[in-house]
Design a protein around this nucleic acid. Sequence first.
RNA 1: GCGGGUGUAGCUCAGUUGGUUAGAGCGUCAGGUUGUGAUCCUGAAAGUCGCGGGUUCGAGUCCCGUCACUCGCCCCA
Length: 429
Amino acid sequence: MSPSKQNLAAPRGMRDFYPDEMLRRSFVFDAWTRASRRFGFEQYDACVVETLELLKRKGGEEIVQQIYAFADKSGRELALRPEMTPTLARMIAARHGELAFPVKWFTIAQCFRYERMTKGRRREHYQWNLDIVGEPALTAEVEVLAAAADAMGMMGLTASDVRIRVNHRALLGELLARSGIPADQHPSVFLALDKRDKVDDLTPFLTQAGLDQSAIASVNRLLEVESLDDAAQLLGEDSAAVHALNELFERLSRYDLSSMIQFDISVIRGLGYYTGIVFEAYDTARTGRAIFGGGRYDNLLTEIGGKPTTAVGLGFGDVVIADLLEEKNLFDGCSPSRDVTVGYMTDSERDAAVEVACALRKAGQSVDLATHTEKPKQFFSRADKKGFREAAYIGPDDVAAGSCRLKTMADGEERVMPLIGKSEVSSQK
RNA sequence: GCGGGUGUAGCUCAGUUGGUUAGAGCGUCAGGUUGUGAUCCUGAAAGUCGCGGGUUCGAGUCCCGUCACUCGCCCCA
């Protein structure tokens, strides 16, 4: 059967990275890695395949349907990880006794989820995970947020491009309790609040959630909470959540991040396992999906069987950020960084070309050596298209003269390089 | 799971009320130019018109089905 176009495409939702796409991916990965290192995080990695049990335990049954699960030849139930946090929790728990807490770890993890594809969402993606485990103090949230902001800064994004929205789960709980809404109705109300940007009137959702009219009125009042001061007025000064958020904003101002961070009562995030401060970053126009999200999850390690350990973490995917960087032309600087290509006219010049390539490589340059003879026109045309900074074309005349010329593609300037001496490579640029 | 849009060359797309040999631009390759790229000129290769069926003298075009891609909804990293 001859291959059809269908068979040549990657499976649905899976991604190939051709060289030009790889450049952009590396641009993002580099920013993540540099920010992680700059903030003192250690890199780790783990297997892509986990036991289904580990993944189920954390996410509950709903998420299981989105997991790429399979049985191996011994019948073990395994799965491609849909996220990194259970793996992190497993690794921490496995060596809990020997780790010096707090632990600051980062990874760029390939994750899989079987779900309907839409803009900004694929079945496979890479996610930067940044976690501080074993630190109950607010410093953990502050450093994680600052590192994320630093990474975005390295990608060229500023406070006019992105906004990090912060909330506190306890704050919402306190506000709802203050409004007389019993705790068992909170999850439904969270769901409804999460839709505030998508629907005009929340009343039908809240009614469905079992709230009576006065409770609905209370929720609608909550929606008018636009600032932390508004919340503080409702809750009073003794609110721990208000205090924590104020403290967070105060501390982030020391990092010069005030213009990028704002309070937003509608940030809910993973209803089940976040326990404290939660945050999400969006483009300022708020047209796309969340760029990253995270928060404090103090119970997760206990849930997988580890000792009680506090944690703050974030997940920052590569798909949404790539869309944003593309839209803002911030990938423009991405180009292959190859310095020189060396070509030759006939096989008689091949040895001289090898000599030139070796000398330049020894001098630390990235050098492409032609794999076969080329006519000058072919060679320079290729050198131009592939974006080499310099090109050296060696023919019989050069070998006879004992030197060759390195041509700077941008301006046509040439510099001479000796052929036989092979010791001196005139300093570049 | 639900709904919309789109499938024609490697890419982006045109293709008239159904009509004879399916086009353009870009890209690729070659030549003009056997020692010098970008511009220019000439030429070439490249198509199961997503797939299957139907209507018709005749289907890229109309109908039915199907698959794929894509954008929303739901949900979520």
